[in-house]
Design a protein around this nucleic acid. Structure first.
Lengths: 332, 332
DNA sequence: ATATTATGTGTAATCGATTACATTGCGGGG
DNA sequence: CCCCGCAATGTAATCGATTACACATAATAT
């Protein structure tokens, strides 16, 4: 690997001139520029970013923290983030925290250590005060999953309202006993979705009892288990709202294995509109978040922070959509 | 953000001593160490990695390049890579190339620029000679998808043999007309799987014609389209082998929409054993790769390269497994 | 008592870039 | 012919760490 010094010597100029050529700044007379560029090419030189970054105190890399790349929900969001980042000269790397607090901390050290310029959090394990400090010290934006209290900006949908719409949809179809599959881990979005669910039941004049909420972990397997719990109840629900598509799909599968007809005997609504939700039998009614746009918006907020703009928006609430398919309405 | 100089001044020692404390190297007398550590804590100091990396010429970060984090197949492999990396003090970041050659190049610049110590390629857009050069200059290992000619080490399964087994399984069930859903992009693995398919047909004494191979893009949608093409054929196959689970699942869906019974009227085999393959109706027969172990092995090879060990293995072929489920054998 | 060694700490070079400031040379106005 | 100003390039400080080497002091050997 060649350095700027070697290039300078070989081209018979100073390192300053080489640097000027690389950054095509200032004036370099055409003849010199060509000579330097030829040498750069010959030596296959590319500037060492550690040197550059140390001097500039910036890396033009941002990182996206998410609990698991295996959850298909994240892919589109990352694409949106990447699109905006690239058009502003930034590179995006994805960091898989596996919901491990220690691993998450290791990644966030990259921020502290200045190896990345900013971070998007799509989920966090840390507590409010840690997040608050993080947001105070570094450019950080939350996307989709968030903690409100911490003063860290976020982009999200109105989870309560989305859940409300999903459950109201079930109620409007005549269901009077509606279950919910939520999550044990208390994410804020899960709490909001539960609130929306309760509100919808109340507004539809339906009764609620705690047995109607089961708890999973966002994955298929837990959806199946929750469905089995519902099946064992005396007074079974005829419809279920799950806060993730994989859980909804797992539930669908379990219900069908028990011989229930979907949506006649049991209606199911999911959340996130992952691609597979159109592949299962029947197709899944679900809440679609504008994932790509959310990613774009998130990156815009982050760029503003990195550039230290003032008076920045703290919250952006995006529109969602209830996508009605065969798991709630036959033949749609 | 405080620097090592500030810490040194505040503690009344030299930067060398502070550095020794941080790296707990050499001898520092207990009293000095405590004083320095107290100051470090008070100033909330953490070493600037750009300075350190510049000096050490290493970052202890490795990157994984993959075409799309939305393909669930990659998640487990990344977990394996991460496990081994972490236990060796390395951090893993995932880079989403979107199969875009330019984006891929941008990420690989991080290698050239010394911002990462090594890379795992799970798929590449570059041609053989580029890959060959990359492998010569930097620590790089291919995983799962690979180019053999380039002399870059790789970890994989025997794709031809796996496809052979899948197709032989179909033949052994009495199918005599067996289609294949392959990919337009000519990945090496796709070519090998086609070879295995052809060999299996030949060994089973079955006829082949070019119409029996359709081409998709590894996604659900393309699987559905290929299935529709099969349905329009005069002499339809009664079984189909797809080189990715999403395509197999898409095909399954399309066949069922046309009223075919699976597996009676049409048997389907996929490839990769993604989690959804157990959630679809019926469950999908597929080839399971030992993804987690492949990730571990890949990272081991990469670590060896980073540490400049000699006489390293160039190829590691792992065992796969044909998982038989309801899409080929009823009730299994 | 002196020479030798070990121990702890400091000084300054170094990694590879960027960039403020200095220098050089040249053309034009007076 | 001198001086000024501008354009092109060079010199050297700087970013924040690590580390070879130097040095001072104390402990030990002779």
């Amino acid at each position: 690997m060649s350095t700027i010094q070697q290039v300078a010597k070989a081209a018979g100029v100073s390192v300053a001139t080489v640097s000027r050529v690389i950054n095509n700044s200032d004036k370099v007379v055409e003849e010199t520029r060509e000579r330097v560029e030829r040498v750069i090419h010959e030596l296959n030189y590319s500037p060492n970013m550690m040197g550059r970054n140390l001097r500039r105190n910036a890396t033009e890399i941002i990182m996206v923290l998410l609990p698991s790349i295996s959850n298909p929900f994240y892919a589109q969001t990352v694409n949106g983030i990447t699109a905006v980042a690239r058009s502003n000269g930034f590179t995006v790397t994805v960091c898989n925290t596996l919901s491990d607090r220690k691993l998450e901390r290791d990644f966030l050290n990259l921020l502290k250590f200045k190896l990345v310029d900013g971070a998007v959090l799509m989920s966090q394990e840390m507590d409010d005060s840690e997040l608050e400090e993080l947001g105070r010290l570094y450019p950080v934006v939350q996307c989709s999953e968030y903690i409100d209290a911490a003063g860290v900006p976020y982009v999200t949908i109105d989870n309560a309202s989305a859940a409300y719409d999903a459950v109201s949809h079930l109620a409007s179809l005549g269901h009077t006993r509606i279950g919910m599959i939520s999550s044990k881990v208390n994410y804020y979005s899960a709490a909001q979705r539960q609130a929306g669910y309760l509100q919808a039941l109340q507004d539809a004049g339906l009764e609620f009892e705690s047995e109607l909420i089961k708890f999973g972990d966002y994955g298929y397997g837990s959806g199946m288990k929750c469905a089995e719990q519902f099946m064992r109840m005396q007074n079974k629900p005829t419809a279920v709202f799950a806060i993730s598509d994989p859980m909804a799909i797992g539930a669908l599968k379990a219900f069908r294995q028990k011989g229930l007809k979907i949506p006649e005997d049991m209606a199911v609504v999911g959340f996130d509109n992952i691609r597979f939700s159109k592949m299962c039998e029947p197709e899944l009614t679900t809440i679609a978040q504008p994932t790509y746009k959310m990613g774009c918006k998130t990156m815009e907020l982050l760029l503003d922070r990195i550039e230290h703009k003032q008076d920045l928006p703290e919250k952006v609430i995006m529109e969602y959509e209830l996508v009605i398919r065969g798991s709630t309405v036959a033949g749609s």
